Amino acid sequence: MSSDDIIALVREDLRTFAGYRSARSEALDGRIWLNANESPWASYADSATTVRRYPDPQPAVLRERLARLYGCSAEQLLAGRGSDEAIDLLVRALCRPGQDAVVLTPPTFGMYAVCARLHGTRVVEVSLVDAEDGFACDFDTVAEVALASEAKLVFLCSPGNPSGTALPLDAIAGLARRLQGRALVVVDEAYAEYSDAGSAVSLIEAQPNIAVLRTLSKAHALAGARVGCVIADEALIGVLQRCQAPYPLPGPSVAIALRALSDDGLVQTSSHIATARGERDRLYRQLRALPGVRRVYPSQANFLLVRFDDPQGAFDRLLGAGVVVRDMRAAPGLHDALRISLGTPEQNAVVVDVLARSREAA
C-alpha cells in the first residue's frame, strides 16, 4: 500500500489544498523580524518565553523529541493541541460532510462522535462486547460495518476510555488489512504509557492506513499545556498540516513540553507511571472486596471502571468527602458505573475508606 493509496482516502477537494502559509512557515533567518505584524515591544507577561512573537507551527525540536519517544520519524508526526485537534483534523480531511461515515465502538471517548457530528459526518456504532475478562472489540463486525457503511475512519481507543481495555495489535493490523484502500484505522493511545501492550505505531510501516494518536496530557502530566500528536503516513501528515490552524502550539506550551521531555523529566514520569500501575492493582483488589460493588473492570489505563448496586449513593458519598469521580451512567451499557481515576496512594486510600465506611453506616 503506497502513500498514493492513503491520499486517495482524503477528500478530493483537499488533496492538493495548499492551506494557509503563515509568516513562520518560511524558513528564514534574521535579526530584525518585521514580517508578521507583531509588536516590537515585549509583553508585560514575557518571562523566559517570548509571547509577542508568533510560534513555530511545528517546532523541530519538539517534533523530533516526540518522534524519538514514540518510535517514528519526525516526518510521520504532526504536533497539535492535544488529541482533540488531531481527531478534528482527521474527520475534516477525510470525511465529506453529509456523505461519509465514521465507525465508533461505544462505550468510548466522546470527542470522536462530537467532531463527526459537528462536521456533518454520519456516526455508525459497533458496541464493545462486555465479556467475562472485560470489554472486547468485535473486529470482524467492525470491518463488516465499516465496509457496508463506506466509512472513511474507524476510531479505536486502546487502552479504551472508559473500558480500560488494551486492544491486540494483531487484530488492529488485521482490521487495517481488510479496510485497505477503503478506510483509515485510527488508534487513540492516550493511556498507552500505563499499558503492557505495544504501540500501533509499529504497524504503520506495513499498514499505512493506520494512524495513532498520542498525548502528553495523561502520563506526562501536561493536561493544561494541550500538547499531543498524530502519527501516520508522511503523505497524510502533510495533508493534515495544511488543514491545521497556522499557529497551533503556543510558545509557553512548547517550552513546558520540552522540559517535561528532558531526560530528568522522563525519569520522573517513569517513576510516576510505575507508582500509578501499582496503585491500580491495589485499588482494583480493594474495590472488588467492598460490599455494594458489583464489578471492577481490569484496566490498562490510569483509571478503573466500577459498577455499583447504588451508583448515585456511591457518587454522592464520595462527593460529600470531597472526592470527584466521573459519572458514566449516561454512556451506553453503563447505567450503574462510575469511572475512578488513579490518584496518589493517599487519595486512593480515601476512596476506599469512604466507600467502605459509608456502606457500613448504611
Results as ranks from 00 to 15, higher is better:
residue 260 A to Y: 03
residue 279 E to L: 10
residue 291 P to V: 00
residue 295 R to Y: 01
residue 239 V to S: 01
residue 201 V to H: 00
residue 273 I to W: 01
residue 243 C to D: 04
residue 257 A to D: 03
residue 248 P to K: 08
residue 198 G to Y: 05
residue 212 V to W: 06
residue 285 R to Y: 07
residue 272 H to P: 03
residue 274 A to G: 07
residue 242 R to D: 08
residue 199 S to K: 02
residue 273 I to P: 07
residue 220 H to P: 00
residue 280 R to I: 03
residue 198 G to P: 09
residue 207 Q to A: 14
residue 197 A to Y: 00
residue 225 A to T: 00
residue 252 P to Y: 06
residue 212 V to R: 06
residue 262 S to D: 11
residue 214 R to M: 07
residue 255 A to M: 07
residue 231 I to Y: 03
residue 268 Q to E: 15
residue 196 D to C: 03
residue 281 D to R: 14
residue 204 I to L: 09
residue 210 I to V: 15
residue 248 P to R: 01
residue 205 E to M: 02
residue 195 S to F: 06
residue 261 L to M: 13
residue 223 A to T: 12
residue 300 Q to R: 13
residue 215 T to R: 05
residue 291 P to C: 01
residue 264 D to P: 01
residue 297 Y to N: 04
residue 293 V to E: 04
residue 241 Q to P: 01
residue 283 L to Y: 10
residue 267 V to P: 01
residue 229 C to V: 08
residue 278 G to S: 13
residue 285 R to A: 15
residue 274 A to E: 15
residue 280 R to P: 05
residue 248 P to N: 14
residue 289 A to S: 12
residue 286 Q to H: 10
residue 208 P to A: 11
residue 268 Q to T: 14
residue 297 Y to T: 02
residue 262 S to R: 06
residue 265 G to L: 09
residue 293 V to R: 01
residue 283 L to R: 02
residue 203 L to G: 07
residue 220 H to W: 15
residue 262 S to P: 06
residue 208 P to C: 10
residue 207 Q to P: 04
residue 225 A to K: 04
residue 291 P to H: 04
residue 208 P to G: 11
residue 270 S to N: 15
residue 220 H to G: 01
residue 214 R to T: 12
residue 233 D to N: 12
residue 223 A to N: 07
residue 207 Q to F: 13
residue 210 I to Y: 02
residue 273 I to M: 01
residue 278 G to W: 11
residue 201 V to M: 02
residue 294 R to E: 12
residue 210 I to T: 07
residue 259 R to N: 14
residue 246 P to Y: 07
residue 219 A to T: 04
residue 235 A to P: 08
residue 231 I to S: 05
residue 254 V to R: 09
residue 219 A to K: 01
residue 251 G to W: 02
residue 299 S to C: 00
residue 249 L to E: 06
residue 293 V to Y: 00
residue 243 C to I: 04
residue 284 Y to I: 00
residue 271 S to A: 14
residue 288 R to E: 06
residue 272 H to Q: 13
residue 252 P to D: 04
residue 232 A to C: 11
residue 278 G to P: 11
residue 231 I to W: 03
residue 208 P to I: 09
residue 258 L to R: 06
residue 235 A to M: 09
residue 279 E to A: 13
residue 220 H to V: 13
residue 284 Y to T: 14
residue 208 P to F: 10
residue 256 I to N: 11
residue 225 A to W: 02
residue 200 A to N: 02
residue 257 A to Q: 01
residue 241 Q to Y: 09
residue 271 S to L: 14
residue 257 A to F: 07
residue 275 T to A: 13
residue 228 G to L: 02
residue 264 D to H: 11
residue 278 G to T: 10
residue 272 H to W: 14
residue 237 I to P: 08
residue 261 L to I: 07
residue 247 Y to V: 08
residue 239 V to K: 00
residue 295 R to H: 03
residue 267 V to A: 15
residue 232 A to R: 08
residue 208 P to S: 08
residue 230 V to H: 02
residue 213 L to E: 09
residue 283 L to N: 10
residue 236 L to W: 08
residue 291 P to R: 00
residue 216 L to D: 02
residue 298 P to L: 08
residue 282 R to W: 13
residue 237 I to Y: 07
residue 284 Y to E: 13
residue 224 G to E: 12
residue 299 S to E: 06
residue 201 V to Y: 00
residue 298 P to A: 10
residue 263 D to V: 14
residue 254 V to I: 14
